[in-house]
């Protein structure tokens, strides 16, 4: 069984962001990079299957600047994945080309029985790449998955939708599953795991080798802006009765939202 897990490296949420002087992007010199939190659920789910099927091979795939992205792949290998594939690509490759590159890297490596991803990356919150990879691989997908089980080559998943409703979906044959929080509890990399990860195979590819032209990008971000200065918070004083009636008055007459 071949399982591929697509991951992305993103700035840590706690990182303070600064923009480049020309506002074309963020200043990435002082950023702490982490594995996208949703991708950790995807890695964990693959490793859970590997526990049940020891012959399963779990391969971590990522697209991005090789120098830093390799760290995220090593994290996945330290958690227990078998192999890594890194596709060297410029910073901020768009979702369309990223999906193309991931699918091409997987196709060139083997025939996937299962592809796992996080439901979205917390940097641009676009939620495009998972379904794009599925489309380019020609397999069905299910996203925002918080429960998953396997039986006879069929996968049954539970997808959270609006209003607390859930869809129970069955997928036949190879497919792509995009993980939500709640699917599992990701393990931490152990020290022996970290040592072993250094010796695990890591395949290095580039966009040209996969036949992908960065000029075919569909979407670019520009004119980045930090949020406007917020007016100071209006603190409401007095006893509980005064605070309440003043708040209601402000919401109606000042903010006009009621």
């Amino acid at each position: 069984m071949k399982i591929y897990v697509c991951i992305k490296q993103v700035p840590d949420t706690e990182t303070k962001l600064r923009l480049k002087p020309d506002n074309s992007g963020i200043d990435d010199s002082a950023i702490k990079w982490i594995m996208n939190p949703y991708d950790e659920y995807a890695v964990e789910e693959a490793l859970k299957i590997k526990t049940e099927i020891p012959a399963a091979v779990v391969t971590i795939v990522s697209v991005g600047p090789k120098k830093r992205v390799v760290d995220a792949i090593r994290t996945g290998l330290a958690m227990g994945a078998d192999e890594g594939i890194v596709v060297d690509a410029p910073e901020h490759l768009d979702s369309y080309l990223t999906a193309k590159a991931l699918a091409a890297a997987i196709k060139g490596d083997g025939a996937p029985d299962l592809v796992l991803t996080g439901k979205l990356a917390i940097d641009d919150n676009n939620a495009y790449v998972s379904q794009g990879v599925a489309e380019f691989l020609g397999v069905p997908h299910a996203t925002v998955i918080s429960k998953m089980s396997r039986e006879d080559g069929r996968i049954t998943v539970e997808r959270e939708v609006e209003g607390g409703s859930r869809e129970i979906i069955q997928l036949n044959g190879p497919c792509l599953i995009a993980a939500n929080k709640g699917l599992n509890t990701p393990r931490y990399a152990s020290l022996p795991g970290i040592m072993k990860a250094k010796k695990k195979p890591l395949k290095e590819l580039d966009l040209a080798g996969l036949g992908i032209n960065p000029a075919e990008t569909r979407v670019a971000y520009k004119e980045l802006q930090l949020p406007a200065e917020k007016p100071p918070t209006k603190m409401i004083s007095g006893d509980v009765g005064q605070q309440s009636s003043e708040l209601v008055r402000l919401l109606r007459e000042d903010a006009k939202v009621l």
Binding site: P11, L19, D124, K222, L224, L226, P227
Partner: peptide, 10 residues
């Protein structure tokens, strides 16, 4: 972008 720490034109 980045959890609302900035916005970007598309």
């Amino acid at each position: 972008l980045y959890s609302g720490k900035c916005t970007a034109g598309v």
